[in-house]
Design a protein around this nucleic acid. Structure first.
Lengths: 242, 242, 242, 242
DNA sequence: GATGAATGAGTGTTCATTCAT
DNA sequence: GATGAATGAACACTCATTCAT
């Protein structure tokens, strides 16, 4: 009834299109309900396709969700790789990777949430190579750190993979703060946070330098804590026990 | 503490005991199969009690698993709080918290895995205030950082909550490296990693100092990559308790 | 704590008391939730006794509910028997049995509801001798009808048991009208209905005589249909199909 | 009726068929085990379909069993309505409704048992509008009685709904006598009982006339108790349709 | 390819019944 | 006798996956 007149993409393209539609729907549903909580039916409905069609494009639920990860990660990875290739300086590389991560979040918080909240999940569950994806990023970054060590830009005693873990762990948890709402999803806050991540990673909390933008702000003593709108940022100044 | 009768536990204590048994079993199963994957039947079997008894002590699956989180987090939180209260120096505090985390992992990788891999996860998964638990740790640590800022031990421009996030993000991801097997779960590797986490967080990758133990090693050029072999092990510099 | 001072009924009486308490509670719960819908726990709570105590007095759920029936029926039966023994005239007997039934309803609609709504139930379910109780009433009445036949008060061609069935079927369904709310539970309506049941059974719909009370009412043409408050009694005057 | 294709039923009809199959199976199981006692698994097995398919066609157990009631009642109702529409005389109407009920029982004792034993039962059992179905029959008949009153065929002082209740109460309890085995399920007994129901309802026990068939029998004193033996059988005086 | 009916194993939850205290 | 914790069979309902059309 409705199928008669379509622009007729070459079969393969039409299919690729469908596949992407389903994948996008999966990301959406996945981010709403989580890995286990989402049903194939939900994905199909979200994608506007028939129930069984999902199984034409994906072997089973695991493959579908695996694909979600892979496409997400590979997109992230390629952006990171591109960013790295545009910079030669170590600090610049670090800065640009953090930038990529924050931009990804700014553009597609849902997708990032999925990636963040489900990495390493599926305890022994036969799921895809999420671990693999994770390993990829770690090792990509580890390569950068090892190179920097060879260039003398970084102390030799550091384990590159661990350094990479600390790097991405910092980024991830920083973004998590936004995901769970502990920090406001405002552009200026995001920017400032990004700078603090870079600074802390490079020079440590003890020697982190202020954001360039914040420098100006510092000139205005009355706005000493621009991180939060009004309500004082941190409640308990002293460790609680309870 | 509460009862003197030694011969047999009074009804109420017996029950409290049962409850704990079930909770422990839940942690176990949970860590093996994850939040959604764990079945009440498994928990009951693991605890060695009848199926229905689980429902005597916990309203439903959600409440049971919620309790797992809460008990796990509160245990971790109280250890962290204790560690903090024993130190006054900022660096020492940082070091001791990292120590607590690593010791927890050394002692009960399963439990840590559960907390690490499931916190904040399961979007709207119905369960308790996992988010709340997460928030608690962040804010506990944020308090420490804020205090350090007041003491002049830390730059004032840092957002304490974000600093806390970077701190725990680093720790978590470092442990994840062990969880997923990218680093060997050997004592010496754990010790060295712990030091690197502390150093990187405090002074940044660029100025991180080598482990005291590793210092000696460095003198021996023939052992250039102590991350993957040897047994130099700088075991637990800080006294463990319990 | 509280058990110290009780009037100390002889053991057997105390127990009989308890038993009755539980039985009453069972009637209550039963009438609210029905045979299958009620849980032993509900009965225990309603009776204010411990969970397991119910099993001291009743072998199992079936026996408990069987007892409910038996006590209900036997009470009804003995009232019916008493009523019958007080009258010698056939019409008077009929009238007094209907009276007993309507009074029982007026006094304890709950109990009647239980008896009415569950007779003959439990399809093949191993339940008690509810059928037995039912049989008892039918045969008691059948005896009366047979006697009346011998006295020449009733045509000989009638099957007494069937006559009894028609009799109690009329009574039951009449009461059901009140139970389900198709007739108002007002005293005057009940009285009038009672008369109509008797008249219809004795002389048939075609020759049923008006209630004595209604006779007076009839004198007042403005109150021609005193069966219902205001809203005209029967909607569709002609058989609907739909 | 709706489709011409003979070769294979179109999808939609196939499904409607399936639905009916399941419904029939539900009636069967239902009549055997009662409302609460029947399990979805039994229904599925009886229908010869997969467990889960039941949930394709019925939201849940309640909806399934609700449908059983509705279809049963509506079938009965339409037969009654048809019978009524074919007769104009009041007595004939009464006679034909009783006939319909007895024929229904003769044809499908199971189904009748279900409707009889479960209507109005299960207090607040959640299921559909069983009460509604009950109300429908009562009001349908009440309409007939009201009409007869207007025609002067019936005393005006009777409450039509109550008359309807007495009518169906008599029928129901008469059938119950067969259901519980107090009367033999033999054709001649059924016929005779049917006549007695009609006569008693119309003219009362006191003036009920003997069955036409039994009249002949009465002439033969040697067959004084034809209720329990013989085979005189006055079969279906009114044409059945079905 | 597309559709959605059909399948059935899996699992949370209830609740009658038992039993140690 | 009283209590309520312990037991476990039973069952409704879900949902990934298959398959006929």
């Amino acid at each position: 009834m409705a199928t008669r007149k379509v622009t007729k993409l070459p079969r393969s393209e039409r299919e690729a299109e469908r596949r992407k539609t389903i994948l996008r729907a999966a990301v959406e549903v996945f981010s709403r309900k989580g890995y286990q909580g989402c049903r194939i039916a939900d994905v199909a409905k979200e994608a506007g396709v028939a129930y069984g069609l999902v199984y034409h494009y994906f072997k089973d639920k695991d493959e579908l969700l695996g694909s979600v990860f892979e496409s997400g990660w590979s997109a992230f990875l390629s952006r990171v790789a591109a960013a790295l290739s545009h910079e030669s300086d170590f600090e610049a590389k670090v800065r640009s990777v953090v930038h990529v991560a924050f931009e990804a979040y700014r553009r597609d918080p849902r997708g990032v949430k999925v990636l963040i909240l489900e990495v390493g999940r599926s305890p022994s569950g036969g799921a895809v190579n999420r671990g693999g994806a994770f390993t990829n990023v770690i090792e990509l970054a580890a390569g950068v750190f090892a190179h920097a060590q060879q260039q003398g830009e970084l102390p030799a005693h550091l384990e590159p993979k661990l350094a990479a873990a600390l790097f991405f762990g910092s980024i991830e948890m920083a973004l998590t703060l936004f995901v769970v709402g502990l920090l406001e999803r405002r552009d200026d806050v995001l920017d400032r946070a990004r700078d603090q991540v870079v600074e802390t990673f490079l020079r440590g909390v003890e020697h982190a330098r202020p954001s360039p933008g914040a420098a100006a702000v510092e000139a205005n003593p009355s706005e000493a804590a621009p991180w939060t709108s009004a309500k004082s940022g941190t409640k308990s100044r002293v460790a609680r026990r309870d």
